[in-house]
Design a protein around this nucleic acid. Structure first.
Length: 584
RNA sequence: CGGGAUGUGGCUCAGUCUGGUAGAGCGCUGCGUUCGGGACGCAGAGACCGCGCGUUCAAAUCGCGCCAUCCCGACCA
């Protein structure tokens, strides 16, 4: 491709709206343009990278035995009513009516559609397993889209669905997809990690997320420091294991002093109360009031800990969980927010973090304005329904598998595999006849890859002050050929020749044949992030050399023009290798 | 949805407080010089100042309403 004819509007200045590096560079490099909040057009340069990511994903899905289909993005409400999700999915589901007044939505995911498809055709165990996928535009009406392609409302996703006759089959499908994902992300060339994850509102029993590792990632993941253990989990999911033997019930020493009210005027927060009473936050119990599916719940954690809402939601089996508003807190505790405690609290279920089984006398809210209670023994003074793992792990906690240390890193979720079980097949009656002639629901799995998000994640992980650094596997072009001709006919002719030779050799090359000053060409080439640059100038030509620059390392070598084809091939192989990739 | 901010040539912004002929840099067009890391000179084109209503002799500027975008939070494959 000749740059003089390629539609790549690069920008010298940062767009005002872009906050994160990937957003900024995608816009500046002329890869995307915003149409409206959270919705972007892919320009030619950006689309080439998007398509390369999609092609790798497609190849690995096909290789793993999945078959590509293409489902509609507009879906009828009736299907969503069958699974009940029409009512529970919330405002993220963009709904609208057609001219007849019938309800539709724009598909945020396709469990209903694919299950409907399969139930119509598959009748016998002999037809199973089935594994179907598509690469398609999804729409989720995010509350607050942000970060460009990282969290858009409209985005490109590969979503796949497996249907098996039994758990064992579903297990195999899951493993096959897991392995296909590992291969796909390896070939894309980004540093990634598979972690255990919460399965979220899509439901199901077990899941892994694939995270591209990047400082700027929105998710925190806990990784075991012991390389051979291999434990890694999303912070939402990572388990807390208490050291040593944990008692089954809180200890209640005899003759311990009774609870006593202490005045804490205007002290709401843990810090304020501890500062005022001269306490360590570890000796305080935080009581957080939630509303779970409309019912009040009090959750207790140690003062210095973070409650993990995902864990709480799972423990309660709730679909809707949110911190209670002030009115509910007031009606339950007879006090403003900040003075809730488990002692004498009625009208709410009370659950506590397991760690509190180990605690001695603690301080907690007194359910009275401006007052706390001290000398509280949870086993004696409170009615706690259940102790469970409710808090978020910290880097000080041990690995739940091997007991060694954990370290935290950040990542961007680019893939997610779930076991769905029979949730959708039962709700939608997707069943088959087994060998014994019995009708049984299919066992499903669901597998997503955020294709457009990978483009952003690649930049978040790999960039420098001049622009993105794309791995050659997904770069829009492998090579930027820069001809520094000016009025020098010989240089211009030679550059043309190199362009022709490379193109004929099947190398994707973007040839900067513009009448621009060298600095402009260098800066644009860097900004587009193509992994290899070939720079031909008058001095080099005189010596029979063309300069080859590795965009990422900045390393420059001279290639012989006489032996260009072989020299280039060897250099190209080295660049691919430096990314840990095999050149195609 | 709560809190904060911003809307002025294609882009980045000044001008708004204190009402009085709409500005700069980049980009764009033409001519000339220049040509290995975002050149320079000269000449140009380009603006319903987000939209509406109001106040005023006069509104980019003041008031009210609306819309859009961004940031923080809640939420989230």
């Amino acid at each position: 491709m000749r740059l003089s004819r390629f539609y790549v509007p690069t920008l010298k200045e940062d767009p005002a709206e872009a906050e994160v590096v990937s957003h900024r560079l995608l816009v500046r490099a002329g890869m995307i343009r915003k149409l409206t909040s959270g919705i972007y057009t892919f320009l030619p340069l950006g689309l080439r990278t998007l398509n390369k990511v999609a092609a790798i994903v497609r190849r690995e899905m096909d290789r793993a035995g999945a078959q590509e289909i293409f489902m509609p993005s507009v879906q009828p409400a009736d299907l969503w009513r069958e699974t009940g999700r029409w009512d529970i999915y919330g405002k993220e589901l963009l709904r609208f009516k057609d001219r007849h007044g019938r309800d539709y939505c724009l598909g945020p995911t396709h469990e209903e559609v694919v299950t409907d498809l399969v139930r119509g055709e598959v009748r016998s165990y002999r037809q199973l397993p089935v594994n179907l996928y598509q690469i398609q535009t999804k729409f989720r009406d995010e509350i607050r889209p942000r970060f460009g392609l990282m969290r858009g409302r409209e985005f490109v996703m590969k979503d796949g669905y497996s249907f098996d006759r039994d758990e064992a089959g579903a297990e195999k499908s899951y493993r096959d997809m897991f392995e296909a994902y590992v291969r796909a992300f390896s070939r894309i060339g980004l540093g990634f990690r598979a972690v255990e994850a919460d399965s979220g509102p899509i439901g199901g029993s077990f899941s892994h997320e694939f995270m591209v590792l990047a400082e700027t990632g929105e998710d925190t993941i806990a990784v075991c420091e012991n390389g051979s253990c291999g434990y890694a989990a999303n912070l939402e999911k990572a388990e807390v294991v208490l050291p040593g033997e944990t008692p089954g019930a809180p200890m209640v020493p005899e003759q311990a002093p009774k609870p006593e009210i202490v005045d804490t005027p205007g002290r709401h927060s843990v810090d304020e109360v501890c500062g005022f009473l001269g306490l360590d936050p570890r000796d305080l119990v935080k009581t957080l009031i939630f509303e779970a599916d409309g019912l009040p719940v009090a959750a207790l954690v140690r003062g210095d800990r973070e409650l993990n809402e995902v864990k709480l939601r799972n423990l309660l089996g709730a679909t809707d969980l949110a911190l209670a508003d002030e009115a509910l807190v007031r009606s339950l505790t007879n006090a403003p927010v900040g003075f809730a405690g488990p002692v004498g609290l009625s009208g709410a279920r009370i659950v506590a973090d397991s760690e509190l089984l180990l605690s001695g006398p603690v301080v907690c809210g007194a359910n009275r304005a401006d007052a706390h209670l001290k000398n509280v023994l949870l086993g004696r003074d409170a009615e706690i329904e259940r102790f469970a793992d409710l808090r978020t792990v910290t880097p000080q906690d041990p690995c739940p598998r091997c007991g060694r240390g954990l370290s935290f890193t950040r990542g961007i979720e680019v893939g997610h595999v779930f076991k769905l079980g029979r949730k959708y097949s039962e709700a939608m009656n997707a069943s088959f006849l087994d060998e014994d002639g019995r009708e049984r629901p299919m066992v499903m799995g669901c597998y997503g890859i955020g294709v457009s998000r990978i483009v952003a994640a690649a930049i978040e992980q790999n960039n420098d002050e001049h622009g993105p650094l794309f791995p050659p596997s997904i770069a829009a072009f492998e090579v930027a050929l820069i001809g520094l001709a000016g009025k020098d006919r010989a240089v211009a002719d030679k550059a043309e020749e190199l362009y022709r030779v490379l193109s004929e050799a099947g190398v994707e090359v973007l040839f900067d044949d513009r009448d621009e000053r060298p600095g402009v060409k260098f800066n644009d080439a860097d900004l587009m992030g193509l992994p290899m640059q070939l720079i031909l100038g008058a001095k080099g030509l005189a010596k029979g050399l063309v300069e080859a620059k590795d965009r990422r390392s900045g390393e420059r070598v001279d290639l012989s023009l006489d032996d260009f084809v072989a020299d280039f091939a060897a250099w190209r192989a080295r660049v691919w290798e430096s990314w840990g990739l095999e050149s195609g």
